[in-house]
Amino acid sequence: MSHFKLNLDLAMPRYPVRAARDVSLLTLDRRTTLKWFGAAMLAAKVELASPASKLVSISARQGYGGDPDLQHPSVPWPRTLSKEQLLIVAGLCDVLLPDDGRSPAASAVGVHEFVDEWVSAPYQEQQQDRAIILRGIDWVERQTALRSSQPFHRAPREFQVELFDRLIEQQKAGESKSEMATFLPRLRYIAIGAYYTTEAGIADLGHIGNQPMAGDYPGPTPQALEHVQQALRRLGLSL
């Protein structure tokens, strides 16, 4: 149970985690952490030692403790990103998750503010991410200054996307070749997790639930059942 950690959320979906109480994939979590996110931890250690990044130690701050009020959740730590840093994060999140006509852009549902909450948190994983994210923001700021007369958030969308593509290239180059290799994977994880836990994101996924039901749980609708039957038929299987 489990069920854990360097960071379960990072490594595995929530369900193995739930399973972990009784269904954990703990060891797997750890190993996949390394596999999927390319030694982000190691990178974080290196970057924490770097004088270049605008790191402010927040380790002295307190978390919410072992017995927080679950009925009235609140975030006890203050956010720490500057306005300029937030604008860059918002711009990057909107390249990742733009308004596509079906659901709003990331910044419209506060994803950049959640990134701020995340990197300002006093826990070890978030502090490691803080080093990675702040360094990435620095990089974007510097690259923008070199190539554009506008700040990143005001630069044309083509420019933003091009810079984003360069980050993807650095991710693919891997850690041995690029200091920025871990930035995009971590920003993706935080931003996508944040987006699809908003009402708009949940609606976009088509998730239905969190409503009390009277009587027996009905199981799949006829349409959902038919979909599975067709899928099985294509595999030469049947219910």
Binding site: P13, R14, Y15, V17, R188, I192, G193
Partner: peptide
């Protein structure tokens, strides 16, 4: 399960 941070994974 209700979407949580596992969506990021």
């Amino acid at each position: 399960h209700q979407p949580e941070m596992f969506m990021g994974v």
